[in-house]
Design a protein around this nucleic acid. Structure first.
Lengths: 328, 328
DNA sequence: CTGAAAGCGCTTACAG
DNA sequence: CTGAAAGCGCTTACAG
């Protein structure tokens, strides 16, 4: 039942040529080797007769590239709970990988005994692929640096500034998008704003804060930053008219603020999209799918040795919404 | 910058031993070769120093194992729309793969030019992995048969009966689960039931119908099957008291029936969970995550040559719900 | 025009 | 105890 599959040597024997000639013929003679049509046909006929199928493993070993891209995440690749924010990126990654003829290896971060580890060995295993995408709020700097140093092609999804800019990335331009939200508030007459953020210093958080603070400063409006709390009564006493809130995978800040401002006349905007979806809340859309696509694109460019911009920030799409009132 | 990756020969040179000895040491000396502890440590140290990572392609070519499991789907692995039903399976697959120390290769079904194809060549490429999971409503019989014939380990997610049972699978026991729903209706006094299904003959559909029809026959109650329509007025004229509806990725039948029976006093059950979630609609929960886990388990058993049951049907969990009335 | 050889990076008998 | 050799099935220079 489990017959040995025919290989090029078998074809060669049947056609009366060398195995190398078989390889050349079946490979479509990319090298442009001169060869009699008769030989070519004999080889093809023999291959057909034997039902030959090339062994992809051997093919890849011999040809140095395996057309596989790694995807390494610092939590489960398919998270149980935060599917919303993560999933679109995967969709984009797969889309573009398929478009470029690349397979994807999901590194589960397992150590053989089943523990999900993120030590150097686990990260090193990504070298199985031609290159690797990394995704997570943290960067294990030492391990990643070793990878970068060997010239292994890698791309982070999300902006990174570790290793003096030697980490290629495709991220979202949270600074501009966040500033645009504040600009809008200002244009509608708001002069006293609060920004509520979570207590985590990933780039996606600091970028948002920076955008908010800078835009407020430029416009000369007051905008205090608070972490993880929503003292609405105090705000209203202080004359605050609008609240901006960060949105993360935990949705913690958003939920707290939303609950607090509901039923008040405070204007309200979110730096992203609310977990419940919809287009009524003022904010912006993070181009996650596009980030996935572009990350794959950049990675393949790195592999083929002709990369474009190593640090890409994609624009977010503003969502006007209806939760910001005109107070002029 | 792009230094060549270290290989066993480099380690051998550094440690002053032969390349074969390196292979033995790094392979954990499975063969029980006698070897001085000193040599072993020297090799290990050299490997660590060089940051050695085994080449999985070469490993597989030489040993036929690379600890990678393939995942081949006949649509995008990360579908844009049907995330609900599909995602939990992926979660289970990843979970169990990680637990067993296996990485996952997502076959994007792309040919080199970017077209998503499902021809024989695309399916044959799965042989890069030690084995492969297949998932989709259809079975490209000829291609799968060739794979099975060469002894390549594969497992389908979802019951299959093609190839005279030679396709190993892990599916859900829709027959029993569907019968249980009808049994419940009968126990509550319903004697005239309609079953609405979609017009697609995948096993998951035919199994549901079979469960419904057989349970009704056993109980001696009338249960007509209709496809893709919900003539509620006619049903009520005919004395129907309960409607059961199939649930698929398209949600078409469910939505049509739900809209039709809403506001009437007809009892209502779904063979699965409604797309809107919740536990109020009577039906059952398909153990998707568990299916993913078990499929990986079976695949690894096939690879290691000690498989359990090749055809596994997992029980679905009944959801009592509140949409079925007592009419006794 | 075609074949013989080397090599991709590993594993696995087999010698000593 | 360790090394040399063969081999997995292919591709790619390199000889003739």
């Amino acid at each position: 039942m489990t017959r040995r599959a025919p290989r090029q040597a078998d074809i060669a024997a049947l056609a009366g040529v060398s195995q190398a000639t078989v390889s050349v013929v079946l490979g479509g003679n990319q090298g442009g080797v001169r060869m009699s049509e008769d030989t070519r046909l004999r080889v093809l006929a023999a291959a057909e007769k034997l039902g030959y199928v090339p062994d992809p493993v051997a093919t890849r070993l011999a040809s140095r590239r395996n057309h596989m891209l790694g995807l390494y995440t610092f939590k489960a690749t398919f998270p149980t709970d935060v599917a919303d924010s993560y999933y679109p990126i995967l969709v984009g990654v797969e889309e573009q990988a398929a478009a470029l003829g690349q397979d994807l290896i999901l590194f589960t971060g397992a150590d053989g005994r089943g523990e999900r580890t993120h030590d150097e060995a686990a990260i090193r295993r990504t070298k199985i692929a031609d290159g690797c995408l990394f995704f997570g709020r943290h960067v294990p700097v030492a391990s990643i640096e070793k990878l970068v140093e060997t010239g292994f092609p890698l791309v982070y999804i999300g902006r990174r500034d570790e290793l003096e800019g030697r980490i290629p990335f495709v991220g979202a331009d949270y600074v501009s998008a966040s500033a645009a939200v504040v600009d809008r508030l200002v244009s509608l007459g708001h002069r006293n704003v609060r920004y509520v953020r979570e207590n985590d210093d990933a780039p996606s958080s600091t970028d948002r804060e920076r955008g908010v603070v800078e835009a407020a400063a430029r416009a000369g409006v007051e905008c205090r930053v608070v972490r993880d709390e929503a003292p609405v009564d105090e705000w209203r006493r202080d004359g605050v008219t609008a609240v901006v809130v960060e949105e993360t995978d935990t949705h913690a800040a958003y939920r707290a603020v939303r609950a607090a401002v509901d039923g008040t006349d405070l204007s309200f905007a979110v730096l992203g999209r609310p977990p419940e979806g919809g287009t009524d809340v003022t904010g912006f859309e993070v181009p996650r799918r596009e980030m996935g696509r572009r990350a794959v694109e950049l990675l393949v460019e790195l592999i083929t040795g002709d990369p474009g911009d190593l640090h890409q920030l994609l624009p977010c799409t503003p969502v006007p919404g209806t939760t910001v009132k005109d107070v002029r």
